[in-house]
Design a protein around this nucleic acid. Sequence first.
DNA 1: TCTAAATGTCGCTATATGGTGACATGACGA
DNA 2: TCGTCATGTCACCATATAGCGACATTTAGA
Lengths: 112, 112
Amino acid sequence: MSAEEDWVWKALADPTRRAILDRLAKGPCVTGDLCDFFARTRNGGIGRTGVMKHLDVLEKAKLVLFRREGRHRWNYLNPVPIQRVCDRWVSRYVRGLAQSANRLKDLVESKR
Amino acid sequence: MSAEEDWVWKALADPTRRAILDRLAKGPCVTGDLCDFFARTRNGGIGRTGVMKHLDVLEKAKLVLFRREGRHRWNYLNPVPIQRVCDRWVSRYVRGLAQSANRLKDLVESKR
DNA sequence: TCTAAATGTCGCTATATGGTGACATGACGA
DNA sequence: TCGTCATGTCACCATATAGCGACATTTAGA
């Protein structure tokens, strides 16, 4: 379908990237601080290069925007794509929810 | 975080798997029919083994349940996990939406 | 100007993942 | 019983991806 959606789903697939989004949800962040955060926090730690690669992916999905300020790079969370994608998928299945509730009921009952 | 969420995100990352969910949203489906559907529909086509692998992943994420009926396997969509995950993530960023709207405004304005 | 800090980029490795064909199992029907 | 259809499982291949170190670039500050 839409290639834009594809990038969002791909970006959200990785737990480290979701952690980055969580971090950015608390407020904008300079890349270096992000790296420090993950070097300390995550199990085993992850280096600067790795963090930047993840930022690239998140940027491609437009989940993260950034602004240069001197030699600093401020990274901003952009929650809009996540909202859009989730809305689309949830609404797509809302109609199915009642139906599948019945179907799953049948499924369970037929199992015993 | 929760390993259960991890599986859901991973499962949703692949476009073929999302297509399978779309197909199942229209109603339960026997594995063979699913395979036929994707053999014909998808560009280049994807074989039975591939479809089953995807079903395994979807099952691990509990997005697909199934029931055996003789030599048939009926696959059911379970929209609950998707709903849960989306709700959690959207609500997590709802508070951030107003803030980030302002931040992004700043970002844009500072760029010119 | 010169140094160090913050970021960007490149090439490499290891593992995960999508996909296949071949073969095994299990149930239905003649 | 026996062939066949639907499914399950296995070993294998190709590519994508996460992660790293090393080096290049840019900017603040002495």
